[in-house]
């Protein structure tokens, strides 16, 4: 009940000022760090009440707009992001609520927070992208970033940042939830805005393919499976045509899928099949791809004869189609 005895900020601007003050004082090495943390936590809770109300009070629009203006003009979000790790465990989650509420706020057709971030403090995005580097705040940053990239302009900014490629490292971090969280963000970055991504993939074919292929070759089951799944999702998109044409002409990719098809684990096999089928179904195949398919004709026929797909009738139809296409391929004629 400490707050009963302390002076409380009277209005939203004062509250944000007080919050900023305490956030900037946070310091691991200081003896009074705990005191600053508690103060931050207290102010953040009050911010939350202004934004969402509580049992007795409904949120007041004019209070919210005062609060937002003060937050932009004092770079409060930036301050919070820089010092996120120094806040206590539960306060960090209040930062998420504050950030996301502001992010969703619209005035007419404008999203003031999105504009603020992109025009005034894009450094915030850099901090968010690099979140997985810290096990303490990785999940918090992931949560915020995923909400940010729902806005196409921010998604574009992230894709065009050199930091984007860090995600291929982050998804291999040994802490499971951090790695998976980074994967979800990577997935969202590449699937939220179709047109944006199709341009991106077309321009970055080499870089992207080698990055995702490395993940597919990972020893970690989860990394392997998630990356194949992401790839098959991208491959299903007609918008990604330019990328697909290159991808399915590349025998390296074909080889990778053949290795996965021969994997012992059923789910990996099936995921691989959903990419492999496009190599076979593509109308104009590159000569190299055709060569590999022809040379393995017998193997494929034997393989698909026994390829076990449980009760999923579309996949069975697809398998039969693939098998039929392979049968139509010419046999190898021995040249001796």
């Amino acid at each position: 009940m400490t707050f009963l005895f302390k002076r409380n900020p009277k209005n939203p601007p004062e509250l944000i000022k007080a919050l900023n003050e305490q956030v900037l004082k946070l310091d691991y090495n200081s003896d009074s760090n705990k005191k600053y943390q508690d103060e931050c936590s207290r102010f953040l809770k009050q911010v939350k009440v202004i934004l969402h109300g509580d049992d007795e009070n409904e949120p007041q629009p004019d209070q919210i707009s005062q609060l937002a203006l003060e937050i932009y003009s004092t770079d409060c979000l930036y301050n919070l992001m820089v010092n996120l790790k120094k806040l206590d465990f539960d306060s960090r989650k209040d930062v998420v609520i504050l950030f996301l509420t502001l992010l969703r706020r619209q005035i007419g057709s404008k999203s003031p927070t999105v504009e603020y971030i992109l025009n005034q403090k894009p450094e915030i995005l850099g901090l968010l992208i690099r979140g997985p580097e810290s096990s303490e705040i990785g999940l918090i940053c992931g949560q915020i970033l995923r909400d940010c990239i729902k806005f196409e302009s921010i998604n574009k900014f992230v894709l065009h940042s050199s930091l984007f490629w860090n995600f291929f490292k982050y998804v291999q971090i040994s802490i499971f939830e951090i790695a998976t969280d980074a994967f979800i963000t990577l997935h969202d970055l590449l699937t939220n805005h179709k047109k944006l991504v199709s341009e991106f993939l077309a321009r970055n074919y080499d870089n992207f393919t080698s990055s995702i292929n490395k993940l597919i070759q990972s020893n970690n089951y989860v990394t392997k499976r998630q990356s194949v799944k992401l790839l098959s999702e991208l491959v299903l998109r007609r918008q990604n045509q330019a990328f697909l044409n290159q991808y399915f002409d590349d025998t390296n990719n074909l080889k990778l899928m053949m290795i996965l098809l021969s994997d012992k684990l059923k789910n990996l096999q099936i995921e691989a099949f959903h990419i492999f089928k496009f190599f076979v179904a593509k109308p104009k195949k590159s000569q190299k791809v055709l060569d590999v398919l022809i040379k393995n004709k017998k193997n494929f026929i034997a393989f698909f004869d026994t390829f076990d797909i449980q009760s999923d009738s579309t996949t069975i139809d697809e398998r039969d189609y693939v098998l039929g296409e392979i049968m139509k391929l010419p046999d190898i004629v021995r040249s001796e």
């Binding site: 390296n252 080889k255 021969s262 393995n296 034997a302 393989f303 026994t306």
Partner: peptide, 15 residues
């Protein structure tokens, strides 16, 4: 044994 399958990927270089 039957289910284990090996493909011939020797033609593909670069891996």
């Amino acid at each position: 044994e039957n289910n284990q399958f090996q493909f011939d990927i020797s033609l593909i270089s670069g891996f």
